[in-house]
């Protein structure tokens, strides 16, 4: 079943076109990787999908998923770095989209939070201040929050940037498990082409507009995919 589709999506900032001609469909259970250089419009596209950027052309349509059933792991912003918030408060805020107008969290939501924290092994950080954590720990906290917000669709913007290889591998394994066992659909922006080729089933290669869109197998045998995957190996 289709979850989400983009049709000819275009975003521009004051006449500067950041991304255009993007068309793709996400099916349930997909592991969709968006790759490309810095400034190629990947984050812009993801934000357009999430309704954070205004779309200046085309459509984004949600089919099998509601707006309140989405989890998102953003790139870290500056404001958060000195924010007084405990890990528990941050993760709990992920449950908010299920609350509607009810002002307080219920037991089931709190249970969901402890599940997510257990899964990401951050239980012992529960009372710690978010701003005092290491980059990798913060990333895990934000992922736990994202998992509280969704059972269906998770969007991640460069989740492994700044993580050491061991933690990054752990994160990839967790995402694979969620994708395989719990049928969580994943859309991920990544610089890590090798990992994209290993885990994803579909790949979109962006350079303002799509250079490639298709299955990972097609990508691996395409000219652009071979170039990049080859390049990675030489590094």
């Amino acid at each position: 079943m289709g979850l989400l589709s983009c049709n000819n999506v275009m975003v521009d900032y004051d006449g500067y076109v950041a991304t255009k001609n993007v068309t793709f469909t996400i099916e349930e259970g997909d592991y969709f990787c968006i790759v490309g250089e810095n400034g190629s419009g990947k984050s812009t596209l993801m934000k357009a999908i999430l309704g954070l950027n205004k779309i200046s052309g085309g459509t984004v349509s949600y089919e099998g998923v509601k707006r309140t059933e989405i989890g998102y792991l953003p790139q870290q912003t500056v404001v958060q770095k000195d924010f007084p918030a405990s890990v528990y408060e941050v993760v709990l805020s992920g449950c908010l989209n299920k609350s509607g107008l009810i002002p307080f969290y219920n037991k089931a939501q709190k249970e969901r939070v402890s599940q997510a924290m257990k899964r990401l092994r951050i239980e012992e950080l529960k009372r710690k201040s978010y701003r005092e954590l290491s980059g990798g720990q913060q990333q895990r906290v934000l992922l736990a929050r994202a998992l509280c917000a969704t059972e269906k669709l998770l969007l991640l913007d460069e989740p492994v940037t700044g993580l050491d290889p061991y933690v990054a591998k752990e994160l990839y394994d967790l995402l694979e498990e969620l994708n395989q066992k719990e049928k969580l659909t994943i859309i991920m922006i990544s610089h890590d082409i090798k990992a994209a080729l290993q885990y994803a089933n579909k790949i979109l290669h962006m350079k303002t507009e799509p250079l490639f869109y298709g299955s990972k197998e097609e990508y691996a045998s395409s000219e652009i995919g071979m170039q990049l995957a080859g390049g990675e190996k030489n590094v």
């Binding site: 934000k47 999430l50 309704g51 954070l52 509601k66 707006r67 309140t68 059933e69 989405i70 989890g71 998102y72 953003p74 912003t77 958060q80 924010f83 918030a85 408060e89 941050v90 709990l92 805020s93 992920g94 908010l96 989209n97 609350s99 002002p103 307080f104 969290y105 929050r145 994202a146 917000a149 969704t150 969007l155």
Partner: peptide, 23 residues
């Protein structure tokens, strides 16, 4: 303030996340 405390926390901590998840 009390009724909207959780929402106020969410939009203060990370407005983009709140918007992205349908708030």
């Amino acid at each position: 303030f009390v009724l909207f405390y959780n929402k106020i926390f969410a939009i203060t901590f990370d407005q983009n996340f709140a918007t992205a998840t349908g708030i």
